[in-house]
């Protein structure tokens, strides 16, 4: 397998990244060699193996969900405190809906 510039552009697009020409030149061979290395896993026959998402513990003994009880959380002001732009108690973003004239 050889990764192409088109593949990298496609993936960058999915990830909402805008790559400069310089970044593209640097990343393409790096990503290609890393992905080639990862193909090492194909040496293993895993047809009979269950996938593992994370370590889990028997839930019957140790319920992991907390009681669904109301509790105090952030005030609107605190939730907005780090917003790059805010207004009318909301996060402001560039316009996404075109207004019909």
């Amino acid at each position: 397998m050889a990764l192409t510039e088109k593949d990298v552009r496609y993936v960058a697009d999915l990830a909402h990244l805008e790559l400069t020409e310089e970044e593209m030149k640097k990343f393409l061979p790096q990503l290609d060699s890393i992905l080639q290395y990862m193909e090492k896993l194909n040496e293993l026959d895993t047809s009979q193996i269950e996938p593992m998402a994370q370590v889990t513990y028997p839930s019957s003994q140790h319920p992991s969900l907390r009681a669904d009880a109301p509790r105090k959380t952030f005030a609107q002001e605190e939730a907005l405190a780090n917003a790059p732009e805010q207004g009318a108690g909301s996060f402001k973003v560039p316009r996404v809906i075109e207004r019909e004239e």
Binding site: V11, A15, H16, L17, E18, L19, T20, E23, I34, L35
Partner: peptide, 22 residues
């Protein structure tokens, strides 16, 4: 989104985001 993430993240973070997205 794209300009924010491109300017805000460094090279290694971008590499890993792209590997993971792939």
């Amino acid at each position: 989104y794209r300009k924010t993430r491109d300017r805000g993240f460094g090279a290694e973070v971008k590499r890993r985001i792209m590997l993971g997205t792939y």
